[in-house]
Design a protein around this nucleic acid. Structure first.
Lengths: 143, 143
DNA sequence: GTCAACTAGTTGATACATCAACCCTGGCCT
DNA sequence: AGGCCAGGGTTGATGTATCAACTAGTTGAC
């Protein structure tokens, strides 16, 4: 029983599309935040400083610079963040409130559709798989 | 050593973003096809018939109807497919040629960044994980 | 000093995804 | 018959992702 690579790929693709679609849909409906919004706000909330340099966001999230620039402009227009001189980004009170509310919703969805249906062994293996693939990719993670 | 769900989730997210980014970038650069183009053309090429009803595409790919409609319009403008009355889609000669060329490129990238770096056990586990998650999600896979 | 190369960031164009609001058409009910 | 409702398909608006081209500050060689 050799696991065909393409079979696994197709199964993985299906999970990727459906799982993230479901979680993003719930997040958007219940909090008004997109996945992109959530990633940015979550990163900033975790950060020990009250402000973050945009290059830290780029490295931490592995985003392209233009993507980040567009996203930050839209988020500033909505009042979730503020841009200060020197490529420094501040989390506004509104942004802090929204991420606090969204975190629980997001975590619950992740558990419901992902964590709760897998065994500890499966979770451990998936972590190993992800790290392996990313490590193999990372040397060429240029943009 | 309990594998924390959120740790696994973050590792998985990182793989998801970087891996699909890399493969899609290569596919686009070398063949001019997006992931969406590829999915449509691949499905149609696999189909035993020379034409496909659009509802079959919707179910097979688990796409929303408006997404499919927009995508088919763009692909028809580029001459990859043709729409016939009765919601029937034909693969043009140009489309057939492009998917034939792209398949090898795509498969090579999947092996290079995914299949070749994982063990058979890991591949088997990932298939099981994907099927489990999708099965748990599928009852509510409405749009 | 100055020129070249590099890096961070921005912008505009284009493609893609999602939502809501439509139009049809084919049952199905009474 | 008339009405009505569910489903497939389209469209427009909006948000998001990517690429290429551009600006501006830094560094380093000469």
């Amino acid at each position: 029983m050799t696991p065909d690579v393409l079979t696994t790929w197709q199964a993985y693709q299906r999970m990727r599309v459906l799982l993230n679609g479901q979680i993003n849909r719930e997040l958007s409906r219940e909090t008004g935040l997109s996945e992109a919004d959530f990633d940015i706000l979550f990163f900033m909330e975790q950060s020990p400083e009250t402000s973050v340099r945009s290059v830290a966001l780029r490295c931490g999230l592995a985003w392209e610079k233009s993507r980040l620039s567009h996203q930050l402009r839209r988020m500033e227009q909505r009042g979730l963040i503020e841009k200060a001189p020197g490529a420094v980004i501040h989390l506004t009170e509104k942004g802090r409130a929204q991420i606090a509310a969204a975190r629980d919703c997001h975590e619950a969805a992740v558990r419901r559709y992902f964590g709760d249906v897998l065994t500890p062994e499966q979770l451990a293996t998936l972590t190993a798989i992800s790290d392996r693939v990313v490590a193999n990719l990372a040397p060429g993670a240029h943009h």
